[in-house]
Amino acid sequence: MKRLFLLFVSVFILANILGSCDKIEQDDYLVFSGAAGEWFDGSGVSDHSQRAIIEKYTGVRCVNCPNADVAIATATSQYGDKLIALAIHDSSSFTRPIGDTPRLSTEDGNTWSNYFGVRAAGEYPAALISRTLNGSVWDLFTPTSGINGRVDNIINTATQVAVSVDATQSNDAVNITVNLEFLQTISDQMTVTLLIMEDGLKVTQRQADGNDDENYIHNHVLRDVITDVWGADIDCTGQSGEKRVAQFVYSDYKNEWNLDKCHIVAMISKKESREIINVAECSIE
C-alpha cells in the first residue's frame, strides 16, 4: 500500500504540473484589439521614399546589446530618415530589471520575439530589418555589424507603397493619420501596424565589462502596439495610383510615458508573409 500511495502522490504531482491550464476570468474574455482605423480616398504622399526598419531585440542584462546600440546609432545617422530603429524588450531572462528599475518588456514585443524565433534562438542582441527572409527563415542577425548591406538591399528597391504618418495630441488621445499612395499594383492583402516608441529612457543597463550603467539612455523603446499586434487590414484595391488615408485614435498610453519623446511608427506589411514593404515615423505634435 505504501508503494501505491507513493504512486498516487507522484501522479497527483504530475497532474498538477500538466494541469496548469489557463483560466480566464469573465471580465477578461475580451481585450482591446487595437485601433482598426477607417479608410477613405486620400490625397497621396509627397515623399515617395523607400525606408527600412531595424527591429532590435534587446535586454538590460544583455552585455553585448550596448555595442548594437552604437552600431544602430551609427547607421541611423548615416541613413537619416531612410532607416528607423526600434528596440524591443521581450521577456527573456535578459530583460529582467536590474535593481529597482522599470521593466521595459511588452507583451506585443514578446509575441513578435516568439514568432520570429528570437527567444527560441536565445542569442541577444538579435535584429531583423523590415522582417525579411533569408531563404526560408527569418533573416535574424547580430546587429553589431551587417546592418548596411541589408538596409541598402531594401532602400534601393523601387517603392511599392509610399507612406506617411502624422500624429497630434488632443485632450486625452493621440490622433494618428496614415496616408498611402500605391506606386505599384499589389495583389496581397496589406496591413498597417502602428506602434509607439519612446526615446531617452534612463534605465540601468549591463555593459560588456559586466558593470551596470545606471545612467544608460535607451532610445526607440517599444511602448505599445496601437493596432493589433499583426496590424489592421488596409481597405484598398491595391491598384497602382490608388491613394488612401485612415485615421486612428489612441488613448491607451500611460501617464509615465513622456509623449514629447515618443514617436509613432507606421509599418506597411503584406498580411500573409508579414514582410514590411515600407515604414514611416513621426513625432507627436
Binding site: 496548469s20 477578461d28 474574455y29 475580451l30 481585450v31 484589439s33 482598426a36
Partner: peptide, 19 residues
Amino acid sequence: ETVLSDVSGYKLNLPNNVG
C-alpha cells in the same frame, strides 16, 4: 492569435493552455 470579437475594437483573450 487574433480572433476578433463581435464587439468592435476588441478581440478574444484566448487561453494558451487548455486541459
